[in-house]
Design a protein around this nucleic acid. Structure first.
Length: 279
DNA sequence: ATAAACGCCTGACGGC
DNA sequence: TGCCGTCAGGCGTTTA
């Protein structure tokens, strides 16, 4: 489920959980770790991961690109949800002291003090978790944050000028720009009236600025709506109701009424209005 | 340098 | 009901 707005929503909910449940993991100590799918751990064998993470305390939770960053006492936990990942916070034990059962798609479970548990849910097993002393060894090669105030139209245009690539795969390249995925890219290109196969270096400075604004707009709207909820991986977001083109092939373009078209770009399903977005 | 093909996984859905 | 193909919010590696 995760693009930037969904990961941001998760990061915020971890920082600010519903008060009545007292599910905050901030300041909590990791006491026990269950590794249900070994390959979830991207950089360490389970016994090292467990030994190193155990007894560390959560300092803060943030996001970089599509990574969730959980700063611990000495190390950092980096979580990437990939296609189907999610997190679930719950109590470890019920009122009678019986552990709540681990669920079918739980791949990694961290148990904290005060009866709090964080489960990494990941049906398709693509998601990964890193435990590193320096997050930059993983995050260092990411492109800029699209919502960074310092990123402006002029800079974005010069970034585009440095490549001669198809616009959509370039925007989704995390080394170019961090956080864009399939949905928000289709939506941003629609708002900018740009065809996904446009060569990046052919954009005018004006179009570069328009594209950045469109990217920032869809991301901010996505965050405002708590992300998008589609498929069986539900997150409680609302942005799926704002889609202009994604998943709407055959329907009328909201701008001009032309039938929305589905094509494949960079091996990904892509949705455009063939009238508004010309090559 | 750029892009396509493929692998990694499970599940939902539609057609027959 | 079951079987089959297709599709899915991602990304790394290999090949052309």
């Amino acid at each position: 489920m995760p693009e930037l707005p969904e990961v941001e929503t998760i990061a915020r909910s971890l920082r600010n959980p519903p008060v009545q449940a007292d599910f905050s993991i901030i300041g909590r100590e990791i006491q026990k770790i269950h590794v249900l799918w070994e390959r979830t751990l991207a950089n360490l064998p389970p016994y090292i991961f467990i030994k190193r993470a155990q007894h560390q305390t959560v300092q803060e939770v943030s996001r970089r690109g599509k990574y969730l960053v959980i700063k611990l006492s000495t190390d950092s936990l980096l979580i990437h949800l990939r296609m189907s990942g999610d997190l679930r916070t719950e109590n470890t034990l019920d009122a009678s002291g019986t552990p709540f059962p681990i669920k079918k798609h739980d791949r990694l479970v961290l148990e904290f003090d005060r009866n709090i548990r964080l489960a990494f849910v990941n049906p398709r097993k693509f998601g990964r978790v890193w435990l590193v002393s320096d997050p930059e060894e993983i995050l260092g090669s990411l492109g800029p944050e699209p919502l960074d105030r310092h990123l402006n139209g002029k800079k974005f245009h010069s970034m585009l000028q440095r490549h001669k690539r198809q616009l959509k795969p370039l925007i989704m390249d995390q080394h170019f720009l961090a956080g864009m995925g399939n949905i928000y890219t289709d939506e941003a290109l629609f708002l900018a009236k740009l065809h996904p196969l446009t060569r990046s270096h052919t954009l005018s400075e004006e179009d570069g600025g328009v594209l950045l604004k469109a990217i920032q707009f869809v991301l901010m709207e996505g965050i405002r709506k708590n992300g998008a909820s589609i498929d069986w991986v539900y997150r409680g977001g609302d942005f799926q109701n704002q889609f202009n083109v994604y998943g709407r092939s055959g329907e009328a373009c909201p701008t001009c009424g032309t039938h929305i078209q589905r094509l494949v770009v960079g091996q990904r399903g892509t949705h455009i209005c063939p009238n508004c977005q010309r090559l």
